[in-house]
Write a protein that binds this DNA or RNA. Structure first.
Lengths: 144, 144
DNA sequence: CGATATTAATACGAATTTCGTATTGTTCAA
DNA sequence: TTGAACAATACGAAATTCGTATTAATATCG
């Protein structure tokens, strides 16, 4: 009862395909100098948002093996975007923190996302924008 | 004039982050037996939708080097999901066509997308669904 | 207290993937 | 007919991910 219709499902699936493609192309075009691969970029953003987190925290969040995360952290440390520290109180762990340069790159990254979102909103009438945001939030945050 | 507000941009960006994460996790959970990597899956879907297309067509569409596409096609041929044929009339080209098995896997793949979209629509009130679809289509298909 | 299990991270190597360069074979144009 | 342009492939280098084994630190419990 009150199920989405087959046609609605089909329409949304198809629209999302074109949507994703458009978004992806824009993203590829924006690939800057400080370009990071997807995992490293996500790692950097997580470390920025969770200063002092451990390597395993990021791995669990991003659903990758800890060895994979260790490599990603290696790369980011080599690029001087984050730092490994030994937290006092637990000397087997590392605490990850973002550097000045890392913060810069992370902000650049986020600016890219914001630009893409801005481009989307511009395609809508002012009256439609709030509704798009509301519906996206509802889907993103609903329980179950 | 009539620009989206900073707050709207921020809200949509943030909502999309959660949205994408939720979508991605669902996708990872659905990873079936016939699992393909992202490029191979996209290639298979393109070949299904464009029977007889050339290798370069797919490469251009997906924005990868032709050598990369050659490898992807190799993998799909090895898995018996697509076939290389020499079209009469142009013997340097290959024409890609999907096989029975490929069609099956492609449909499975699309079913996964449809399920994700269904899950999204279910999170909305029936009255909101058409609006979500309309707005997504508008963003996906607008010129400029 | 000491032995053992658990935890956090790393070292190392295998497998996969992507891509650049060079090459083969075909078609087109002058 | 010869040379340029084109479609695809062969090959090798670089990067990434992950599993297994290892190191070191902390927790547990007899």
């Amino acid at each position: 009862m009150d199920e989405p219709t087959q046609q609605q499902i089909e329409e949304l699936t198809s629209a999302f395909e074109r949507f994703a493609r458009r978004f992806k192309v824009a993203e590829a075009a924006a690939a800057a100098d400080n370009a990071l691969n997807a995992l490293d970029a996500q790692t950097l953003l997580f470390v920025q948002a969770n200063a002092g987190c451990g390597l395993g925290d990021v791995a669990r969040y991003l659903n990758v093996a800890t060895t994979t995360m260790s490599s990603a952290v290696d790369r980011l440390v080599r690029k001087a975007m984050i730092e490994r520290r030994r937290p006092e109180g637990n000397r087997r762990a590392v605490a990850l923190t973002i550097t000045e340069k890392g913060r810069y790159v992370a902000e650049e990254q986020k600016a890219g996302y914001r630009n893409a979102c801005l481009a989307m909103l511009r395609l809508l009438e002012p009256s439609e924008r709030a509704e798009m945001i509301r519906l996206t939030e509802k889907i993103a945050d609903s329980e179950s």
